[in-house]
Amino acid sequence: MVKKAFAFTLILGMGLLFYQLYRQRSTSTDLNKTARYYVENGPKETGSANVVTSVVVTYRGLDTLGEVTILFVAASIIGFFLKNQRNRKLEGAPGETSELLHTGSVFLVPLIFLLGVYVFVNGHLSPGGGFQGGAIIASGTVLLFLADPSIGAGRGVIHVLESFSGMLYVGLAVAGLFLAGGFLDNRIMPLGHFGTLLSAGAIPVIYSLIGLKVGAELSSILYALKDAKE
């Protein structure tokens, strides 16, 4: 009880902090100069119709690289951390899954994967992008696992994909140093015609790699968590 009272007091304190925080916020109705720059120059400089994408992949591309890294690190950690359990995978017989789920998955998984690919390939044009697409792909993986918990296939592919997309991503980023204005500059490829699929320089490529990478990382995390089950 004392603990809860304490906790409550602290929450009250935090509430006060929030109150003050909110009161100090800017209530301007205009874009600030950074946002204005992105909106005004983003499409021109990067060729990406989706300003958010231009920010995510190019202007703040280093964040995105970092974020991919975090996923990668998390996946690696969970990978080697839960590894010990892998051998025990076969001990408990996998439970029977419903026929419906199994059949459905055969039908749905490719579609889900396709949707994911669509989302990340079009990241520079429409809402969506690498992360969203990657997450969708991973949800396909979940479906696969649900349908057949003992599935082990594809892990190799995932790992190759994981590494490969990451390396390519870094490679493209470095290429920006030599071929264009700097690290992660998307103009190593022609900007193309604004608003089409093959525009915005390297953005779609990078976003696709991100999509693949995210999908692979999430799947690999799921793999590890799945195998860790007793």
Partner: peptide
């Protein structure tokens, strides 16, 4: 709207 928070929130 401001695109920056949207980009940030993604990360």
């Amino acid at each position: 709207v401001d695109p920056v928070p949207q980009a940030i929130v993604l990360t």
